[in-house]
C-alpha cells in the first residue's frame, strides 16, 4: 500500500465528498445557466400560443412540443445533473429504459386509439337508444 501513496490520497479525496455522488454536484453557474435557459424556453411557447404568432396551428404545436423536449433536457442536465458517469452509468441506463417504455406507451396509445376511433362504426340515434 505504501508503495502507492498518490493513489491512496486520491482515493481519500474522492471519499470525502462521496455522500453527494448520486445526484452529482451542482455549481452556482450551472444552476443559473439552467434557470436562464428554462425561462427562455418557457417564455417562447407561451408567447407563441398567447400571441397567436404563427399562422399554422400544426407548426405551432410541433414547435411547442419540440421546445418542451429541449427544456426537459436542460432540466435533466443542469438541475438533475444527469450524465453518463453517475452510478457507473446505471442512472442513464434506467433513464433510457424508461424513455423507451414512455415512447411505446405514448405513441402506442395514441396510434391504436386513433385507429379505433377512425374505424368505429358510426352510430345512429336509434342504435344509441338501444345501448345496454
Amino acid at each position: 500500500m505504501s508503495a502507492n501513496p498518490t493513489h491512496e490520497s486520491a482515493h481519500d479525496a474522492h471519499h470525502a465528498h462521496s455522500d453527494g455522488h448520486g445526484a452529482g454536484h451542482g455549481s452556482f453557474r450551472g444552476y443559473m445557466i439552467g434557470f436562464v435557459l428554462s425561462i427562455i424556453l418557457t417564455a417562447i411557447p407561451f408567447w407563441l400560443v398567447m400571441g397567436d404568432v404563427l399562422d399554422s396551428k400544426l407548426f405551432t404545436a410541433v414547435l411547442v412540443m419540440a421546445i418542451g423536449v429541449v427544456q426537459i433536457v436542460v432540466h435533466m442536465v443542469y438541475f438533475l445533473h444527469m450524465n453518463t458517469r453517475s452510478e457507473g452509468g446505471w442512472t442513464m441506463m434506467a433513464l433510457i429504459f424508461t424513455l423507451i417504455i414512455v415512447g411505446i406507451a405514448l405513441a402506442g396509445s395514441l396510434w391504436v386509439m386513433h385507429h379505433l376511433n377512425a374505424n368505429m362504426m358510426p352510430m345512429t340515434h336509434e342504435m344509441m337508444k338501444n345501448m345496454p
Binding site: 400560443v49 404545436a61 412540443m65 418542451g68 432540466h75 438533475l80
Partner: peptide, 20 residues
C-alpha cells in the same frame, strides 16, 4: 426537480396545445 420536469410536459401538452 423531477416534478418540474413533469410540469414542462403538463403546460406544453395539456394547457398550450389544449388552448391551441
Amino acid at each position: 426537480h423531477f416534478l418540474d420536469v413533469i410540469w414542462i410536459g403538463v403546460f406544453s401538452f395539456v394547457y398550450l396545445l389544449g388552448v391551441l
